[in-house]
Design a protein around this nucleic acid. Structure first.
Lengths: 290, 290
DNA sequence: CACAATTACGAGGGTCGTAAAAATG
DNA sequence: CATTTTTACGACCCTCGTAATTGTG
């Protein structure tokens, strides 16, 4: 068995051609490297170098050895990476969500149940959510439609109805509800990170002129400082402070209303059971109150 | 990068279950192993064990780590084996021969040209000779027919005519030549390691009762001490001492006469050029003498 | 009390760096 | 004479073993 450090030194020599240069790159002295290479030859019981006139170079065997050594080093490095990644995956829950609102609702509940885990979130929608769940990128997903996949456990969570907010003097301010096409030709403030709602906008509001904001603070400032309409929702209105200068009007369209579902792999269901139970009770209680 | 010795210790622990047992198998003290495992965890930055009540066991990550470590160790070991095998192949010429006579003829010539190499020989015939040449088992082959293979260089060498030796009082002793079927029903002494001649015997001397001898000395004793006929050949007669009590009679059959060919891969032709030249000259000189 | 793991401490092996030598163009 | 490799020597790190400690079953 040959230790990795010797293999690294061999590979460095193979790469840089002279002991001095390789030793320099390895941050060791050149005599140290010279001795290591001698040791390597001794341990293998094989000549790896042709030494002639104080010049040293790999022979045919040395060349092979350097290539095989590189492979062994790569595997070793890969091993370390995989071990760390696996360990990390055991201590973290990555949540993929199709929309920001249910994600913010869910976070404190997850924190409560899995406080010792690192909980990270990602906004993503479409096939990638289910794929991510299956290949282990996400442990939990928030969907906007139930999944029928046999590998996946799925439980309904909360609803969200899309609203718009307009200033009091806006032409739509007096309406009880609006349609998507009421906003045709309108300049409209839109936050960039809205998950699947983006696809809703693209499909049903083709004629609206969106002013997309990457930064949340910039968006808020624009909502307060301009007369452009912007999105909100019943969920957001219930949990965040509303702006007094704004009128909130529901959008009366089938595609402005979604029920969110929480999903995980069947094999992980047990691990998350307490969490799913709490969600279930919350939903039930809410339903009873109404 | 994790050194191999730590991986070996981890794998040993995974295999034997307790530090004490594993340390014992590794021929190191148990505290040493304990410290190594701590070091491994530190270097990986990951917990590999569950320690409880002075018991230690692999956790899920440790289990993965042990498996990956085993793979890395295997590759390392494989590397050493391959390096040594390659180096050996550079310093040795393995000759595959279809018959013993041309092989004994060739050995001193090879020794002369490649004295620094280890020269080993193997008696083998049929497809395996050409295959062995192609896959590197043999550097040089002695064939009993020329090879038409495009990868292979082939040069004619010497002839061998099969003889039989019989005691003076044998019923065939007066004949000028014999046929294979003259020996039908006869008990016949045969050396085991005769290469392709074995197949000749099997094909053309089905009715001869061969007494196969594994040991050369036993064979010689039997030839001297019994009246059973045995094989010889013009080549053997020319190079070895003949037995005065025996009469040597040529076998007058097409298949009792072969020309041998020396073959190597085309890519190795250069390396063996001096050797092939000498053979060529030897053959030419011999032809001129006749 | 036997057994297993950890901690403490001193010994020894091995790798390292500095310095010097050797060899070459 | 600058460059490169090897040899020599001493320092230090790191692993090891012994012994002691802790903690079960």
């Amino acid at each position: 068995m040959i230790e990795i450090y010797l293999l690294e030194q061999l590979v460095a020599f193979a790469k840089y051609g002279t002991l001095s240069k390789a030793a320099d790159k390895l941050h060791i002295s050149q005599p140290a490297l010279s001795r290591s290479m001698q040791k390597l030859e001794t341990e293998l019981g094989v000549n790896l170098f042709v030494r002639k006139n104080k010049k040293i170079a790999l022979n045919e065997t040395g060349d092979l050895a350097a290539r095989l050594a590189q492979a062994n080093i790569n595997q070793n490095r890969e091993m370390v990476i995989r071990i760390r990644a696996f360990d990390k995956s055991l201590h973290s829950i990555n949540v993929g969500s199709c929309a920001p609102f249910p994600m913010t609702q869910l976070m404190p509940i997850l924190q409560k149940h899995f406080g010792e885990m690192t909980i990270s979130t990602e906004l993503i929608y479409g096939k990638q959510l289910i794929n991510g769940l299956k290949n282990g990128i996400y442990k939990i997903c928030i969907l906007n439609e139930p999944s029928e996949d046999s590998e996946i456990f799925c439980q309904s969570y909360i609803d969200e109805h899309l609203y718009i907010s307009v200033p009091e003097n806006h032409r739509l301010a007096k309406k009880q509800s609006v349609k998507f096409n009421d906003l045709d030709g309108e300049k409209f403030l839109l936050f960039q990170h809205i998950g699947f709602w983006k696809s809703v906008c693209e499909e049903y509001m083709k004629n609206t002129d969106f002013l997309v904001q990457v930064d949340r603070d910039s968006l808020l400032e624009l909502i307060e400082g301009t007369n452009f309409p912007a999105f909100s929702s019943d969920g957001i209105l219930a949990t965040e402070q509303t702006l007094s200068e704004r009128i909130y009007i529901p959008i009366n369209e089938a595609n402005a209303h979604y029920t969110y579902y929480i999903a995980c792999l069947n094999k992980d269901k047990k691990k998350f059971s307490s969490f799913f139970n709490e969600i279930h009770h919350t939903v039930i209680n809410k339903a009873n109150k109404l």
